[in-house]
Nucleic acid binder design. Structure first.
Lengths: 182, 182
DNA sequence: CTCGTACATGTACGAATGTACTACTTCTGG
DNA sequence: CCAGAAGTAGTACATTCGTACATGTACGAG
């Protein structure tokens, strides 16, 4: 009953527990004990599988980045098959802005990356990936501007009860994507 | 020599010390001892002047918000007297994006506000204030969109070595401010 | 089988933290 | 002038933390 032998699964559960905890307590609120309790493993397991707490945090943020990249592929496909890129992008963004936990997690990654440069490549995945996707429908400058706006909308939704309305999103993104190509 | 009697000044120095420390260690890295050491006061002074560490943090973030509001007034005046609003706004933003400490502090406030709702009004000051300023030159929707973009540019600069270039800023802001009024 | 290695688990420990507390000094109102 | 309030300063204490470690258990190679 106690601990069935299963290294991969145990590690995975700890990473998942850490991902669950980040929106609740923040990256800096993570502790070995909190993760162990949430994952249902003894305290010692956290130090056995991760060289340090920083490693555990990095593993959790890396996992969060993987999830984000997966979401990015979905966005890419959706944009590919749609007729109206700005409208579709606005709709996808509006959906994103309703998933508070994902937004908080991503902002935690930004904040952590601001203090720890080694995390910056991870933090760039979303913005760079989205920019690359949008480059198929607009100039490089316009694509990046639209991606920057989406991140601004994320920040806005973090501190306002009501996220940006769908029409504002669509008009703004349309305006940016229609910018002269650089 | 030790501590001349001067309550107001002491409190002010501790708040200032906390503001200095936030970009270095983050909001969650603040401790009584760190603030006391930086301010040059004994440990006891921090608990005498602030009911709890949260109070100290709140005081520091409030002070940071005051500085931001002051900066906002400068932006307002600059925009008032200029000929080309998007170009001036882009230049002001470009200057802002070079002050890394201010950006990090502001992002720390966002992250803290995401977890502590009582800080949200403070976090909204910048975005709401900028939106209000811009409302004199564009519709409500366009003004807000431009402010959201500026915050997105802040996030972008936090995790990239090179901030957004001036031309991208100007074109993007021009496109947003020219949006149909809502 | 058996033995070494990888995994599991509970406990221990030094360091750091928030906060309370005691003693001391300076100021102020009567 | 002189209490008592307000400010200053050093220290103490319970708690929590990251991490190390000792012991126990399963499992695959020979």
């Amino acid at each position: 009953m106690t601990g069935r032998r299963n290294p991969g699964e145990r590690r995975r559960r700890m990473v998942e527990a850490a991902c669950e905890l980040i929106p609740e307590v923040g990256v800096n609120g993570l502790t070995h004990r909190l993760v162990a309790a949430r994952a249902g493993v003894p305290l010692g397991a956290t130090t056995y599988y991760f060289a340090s707490l920083d490693d555990l945090v990095a593993a959790a943020l890396t996992r969060a980045a993987e999830v984000t990249e997966e979401g990015l592929r979905l966005w890419s496909e959706e944009l590919e098959r749609c007729a109206d890129v700005p409208a579709t992008l606005a709709a996808l963004t509006a959906d994103y802005l309703r998933e508070r936990d994902r937004m908080v997690t991503w902002n935690e990654l930004y904040a952590a990356a601001a203090h720890r440069p080694e995390l910056r490549p991870l933090a760039r995945l979303w913005l760079d990936g989205l920019t690359r996707s949008l480059s198929r429908y607009a100039g490089a400058r316009a694509a990046r501007a639209a991606a920057v706006f989406v991140d601004g909308a994320l920040l806005y939704s973090l501190i306002n009860d009501e996220p940006l309305d769908a029409e504002s999103l669509e008009r703004s993104l349309a305006a940016l994507l229609a910018m002269d190509a650089g």
